[in-house]
Amino acid sequence: MLQALTDMLLLWKDDPSVSMVVLRGAGERGFCAGGDIKDFHRAVSNDAHGEFADLLSLEFDLDAMIAGYPKPVVTLAHGLCMGGGIGLASHAAIRIATPDSSFAMPEARIGYTPDVGGTHLMALAPGFIGEYLALTASTFSGVDAVELGFADMLVDGEKFDDVLDALPDFEGMDAADIAAGLEVLFGSFAASPLMAAQPWIDHAFSAPTLGEILERLDAMSHSAAAEAAEQMRANCPTSMECALQSIRAARAEEHLRSALDRELRLAKYLMHRGDLAEGIRAQVIDKDRNPAWVPASIGEVDVAAVAAVVAEPN
């Protein structure tokens, strides 16, 4: 799929008969989510790390191409839009989600870390909600996605065909004008529950370390903070450290390409650790939901080793 999309975008890039590109998920289940996870498990379990890294490099280059494409790219995300789906959907010029779409970067559950430019998007989200999403691996709705900068507008899924029918009327316009016109014609609005929770999220997830974030969550009296702490304690400690440092490095730079390059370095670091294979086993293959992380606690994570990977190579 990644290669086919790359080939078509390269073909259409200089084709004068193509004025815009639309990317839409096939089928009813969703836009894109997790179809490659079992392949990743086979790669890291059978010493095929290079194949894994090559696939990720192809994927990240495709995401960057979508972000910088010279013609408007419209993405229509429905159902599940997680992991690699966010890389395809959320870097486009015109990003449409449905109110009931489910977005997530849940990589910390499987011993991995947000990639496909996800750390760039999380860094640009309001306050410290990006850290919250990465460290808890929480799912958020299409409504939240618009407020957080992962999508531009909400359109009911049953109107997607109407959007496609209307696109020829916008031929020759730039992406901003197309987006504005589509929102007027088809857009809807709803308040984001996640944005309403921003005050306590910012208080906890602005802390400098994983340990201090958990301390702040544990000191809060409401159930949402307790749930966030419980989610963190179930996730891979090393993955969370990678995510925390990667998001904060991305916030300092605000460049998608540098975020993608950093994410690839972290992927190569994590794929040689046992946590990734163990996390996929526990969550996807055996589904016992009981991964044995090494190390098992955030206090034992090699923070300096992660920082060296996050930093620009010499």
Rank of each mutant, 00 (worst) to 15 (best):
L58G: 06
L58I: 00
E59T: 03
E59A: 14
D61A: 15
A64G: 13
I66E: 11
A67V: 02
G68R: 09
G68L: 01
Y69L: 11
Y69M: 10
Y69T: 14
P70L: 02
V73K: 03
V73M: 07
A77N: 11
H78T: 07
H78P: 00
G79N: 06
G79I: 05
G79S: 04
C81L: 05
M82C: 10
G83Q: 03
G83S: 15
G83T: 08
G87K: 10
G87C: 13
H91E: 03
H91V: 06
I94E: 14
R95S: 14
P99Q: 07
S101K: 09
F103H: 12
E107D: 15
A108C: 15
A108L: 12
Y112V: 01
V116L: 00
H120Q: 02
H120D: 15
M122F: 10
A123F: 07
A125E: 09
A125K: 02
P126C: 11
P126W: 08
G127A: 04
G127W: 04
F128V: 00
I129Q: 00
G130V: 04
G130N: 06
E131H: 05
E131K: 00
E131R: 02
Y132A: 11
L133F: 04
L133R: 08
L133P: 00
L133I: 15
A137C: 14
A137F: 03
S138F: 00
F140V: 09
F140G: 12
S141L: 11
S141P: 08
G142I: 03
V146Y: 07
E147V: 08
E147A: 15
E147C: 12
L148M: 13
G149A: 14
G149P: 03
F150S: 10
A151Y: 02
D152T: 07
D152V: 11
V155C: 08
G157Y: 01
G157N: 07
K159T: 04
D162F: 01
D162H: 01
A166F: 14
A166P: 08
D169A: 15
